[in-house]
């Protein structure tokens, strides 16, 4: 019996990789849906968005790069879809250089129109960039949403937005035109003029900095979508009320997708995620049993020596 456990402890690590690969891959092909209960922290964020009046302005800070796309991109897509469907205006910025590019990709992906472009009053408008169609709703660049791009300076960017938003983000990303030319920017002079901030963050600068500067200094409500690695760092800010909800990793994204009625990538991935977790837990339990069963034997062997 002991030999079995000893052999388990010396198993080739590549065998474990194969098991994890299968645990993740097979559910992708089977496409089995699992029930996704909504946790309190996700519900708080959703409720905060629900409470916003039509036409409210939301600052979306995409502080991540393609490396965190599987976790944060589904959140961005679900959020943008919700904003368009509920007539909420959103302004995309990024404290990470690739963040606003990810924001643009999310807009492109949620667009449901099959047309490529339309010509309106002599202007060519591209779907997925200038116009976004979600169900029966349409959002237009510069009026309903805008991308102001990346700004270098980490947390100091947030600090500067607190006093002058225009000085921090003088022009838009798509056309390079002064931001004041766009109707969506009307009435936005500083950070406190926003009704809500949604921060999608994969590290530094990210949620911690948004809490410390935007929430505690300028008293703007901030909700966060985090990678799972970063989520434990953000949780202490939830109970204190400094954060208005957290979407923690892919699971948080799946819950949010459920609430906004946009069951997409995060929801689809939850079966793979669950299978992998079951196997990881199994490996931990079996590994510990094997360790404790064989430890006695090796200790006796050491004593004999």
């Amino acid at each position: 019996m002991n030999k079995f456990w000893e052999r388990l402890l010396t198993i080739d690590r590549r065998a474990i990789f194969v098991v994890i690969f299968l645990a993740l891959s097979v559910p992708i092909f089977l496409q089995i849906g699992l029930p996704i209960p909504v946790t309190r922290e996700v519900q708080i964020l959703y409720d905060a968005l629900e409470d916003l009046p039509r036409g409210a302005k939301i600052l979306v800070s995409c502080d991540y790069d393609p490396g965190s796309e599987p976790e944060l991109q589904p959140m961005a897509e679900a959020a943008f879809k919700y904003f368009v469907a509920n007539d909420l205006r959103f302004i995309i910025i990024g404290l990470w250089p690739q963040g606003p590019i990810q924001g643009n990709r999310a807009i492109e992906d949620i667009n449901e129109s099959d047309d490529e472009l339309i010509v309106e009053n002599g202007d060519t408008l591209y779907f997925g960039a200038d116009l976004v169609v979600v169900g029966e709703d349409t959002a237009r660049y510069g009026i309903d949403f805008i991308n102001l791009g990346f700004q270098v300076g980490q947390e100091l960017v947030i600090q500067r937005m607190g006093t002058s938003f225009e000085a921090t983000f003088p022009s838009d990303r798509r056309f390079g035109r002064p931001q004041k030319e766009f109707p969506i920017m009307e009435g936005i002079y500083r950070l406190a003029d926003f009704d809500f901030v949604l921060n999608l963050s994969a590290g530094y600068p990210g949620t911690v900095e948004w809490v410390q500067f935007a929430v505690d200094r300028f008293h703007v409500p901030v909700g966060a979508g985090n990678t799972a690695v970063q989520a434990p760092l953000a949780y202490p800010y939830l109970d204190t009320g400094q954060l208005t909800g957290i979407l923690g990793g892919m699971k948080g994204g799946a819950e949010f997708e459920r609430l906004v009625g946009h069951r997409a990538r995060a929801t689809m991935s939850m079966t793979s995620q669950t299978m992998a977790h079951i196997f990881v837990m199994l490996f931990i339990v079996v590994g510990n049993i094997a360790f404790f069963v064989t430890r006695g034997k090796s200790e006796r062997r050491d004593l004999r020596k």
Binding site: T227, A228, G249, S269, V280
Partner: peptide, 25 residues
Amino acid sequence: YTVMSRMSLLIGRLYFLFSTWLGFV
């Protein structure tokens, strides 16, 4: 949470391989 995060990244890559690249899903 770290395990969940790493698995999520792997799922993202697998979706890319099986869906975007190979078109199986």
